[in-house]
Computed example of a mutant assay.
Amino acid sequence: MLHALPKKSSRELRALVSALDDKILTRGKAIQADNLDVPWWRDQL
């Protein structure tokens, strides 16, 4: 999607996505998918 946008819009969206990626990655909690009895979306994000 970023490549399809005009340069300015792409740059703005890339900055937002990058900030969110950094925030998610710094949480340090991985989503566990090895237990199929517990839905992964509950208390995992």
Rank of each mutant, 00 (worst) to 15 (best):
H3L: 06
K29M: 08
V17F: 08
D22K: 13
Q32C: 00
V38T: 14
W40P: 00
S18A: 10
I24H: 10
A33K: 01
L45C: 06
K29R: 13
H3C: 05
N35G: 02
A15E: 09
R11Y: 03
L36G: 02
S9R: 14
L20I: 15
N35D: 15
K8F: 05
G28F: 14
L25V: 04
I24W: 11
A4E: 09
D21A: 14
P39C: 09
L2T: 08
M1D: 14
T26D: 15
W41R: 11
A30W: 04
L2W: 03
D43Y: 00
L16S: 09
R14A: 15
L2R: 06
L36N: 06
E12F: 01
L13A: 10
L20V: 12
S9N: 09
Q44R: 10
P39E: 10
L45F: 10
I31Q: 07
V38H: 15
I31L: 08
D43C: 02
W41S: 10
R14D: 15
H3A: 06
D34S: 10
P6T: 04
L45M: 04
E12Q: 09
L13W: 11
R42K: 05
S10E: 02
N35S: 05
W40Q: 00
A4S: 07
Q32T: 01
H3Y: 03
K8V: 13
I24P: 00
S18E: 14
I24E: 12
L13V: 11
L2G: 02
I31S: 04
A19C: 03
R27L: 11
L13Y: 13
L25W: 06
A33I: 04
G28W: 09
V38L: 14
R27V: 10
V17T: 12
H3W: 01
K23E: 15
E12P: 01
A4I: 04
D43Q: 02
R27A: 05
R11H: 07
L16K: 06
S10Y: 02
D21S: 14
D37Q: 12
L36A: 09
D37P: 03
W41D: 08
A33E: 00
W40A: 03
G28Q: 03
Q44T: 01
W41V: 11
L36Q: 14
S9D: 14
P39F: 06
I31P: 00
